[in-house]
Design a protein around this nucleic acid. Structure first.
Length: 92
DNA sequence: GTGATGACGGAAA
DNA sequence: CTTTCCGCCATCA
């Protein structure tokens, strides 16, 4: 049972400013589905809080600016996951 | 039905 | 540190 788009977005909306989650955490065993969900998601979802498991991101400077605006710890081109990663399931 | 693709993940070299 | 490769699964041509 893969997570539905609705569940994926519901989890993402639980991620508070200053923290990030990953595609894999939003949708275990089918992380690409999380990406697809975001691509078609509305403006109400904080898509910039979703990064790769290694802390890198795919939406370039735009995403970087939004993350920095929330004081997400960044080192080079990667989010410092040790500090910013939060697990949706743990706050669900 | 088959094969390619993707806002991925993780292990291996 | 970088590149390569394979697994994963919903979509789509």
């Amino acid at each position: 049972m893969s997570a539905s788009t609705g569940l994926i977005l519901a989890r993402l909306r639980r991620v508070p400013p200053g923290f990030v989650t990953t595609y894999g955490d939003l949708c275990p065993r089918a992380p690409r589905q999380a990406g697809r969900a975001l691509a078609g998601a509305g403006p109400d979802v904080p898509w910039w809080r979703v990064v790769h498991s290694d802390g890198s991101w795919t939406q370039g400077e735009r995403q970087r600016r939004l993350l920095e605006a929330e004081a997400v710890p960044i080192r080079g081109e990667r989010v410092v996951m040790r500090q910013a990663r939060i697990y949706p399931e743990a706050i669900y």
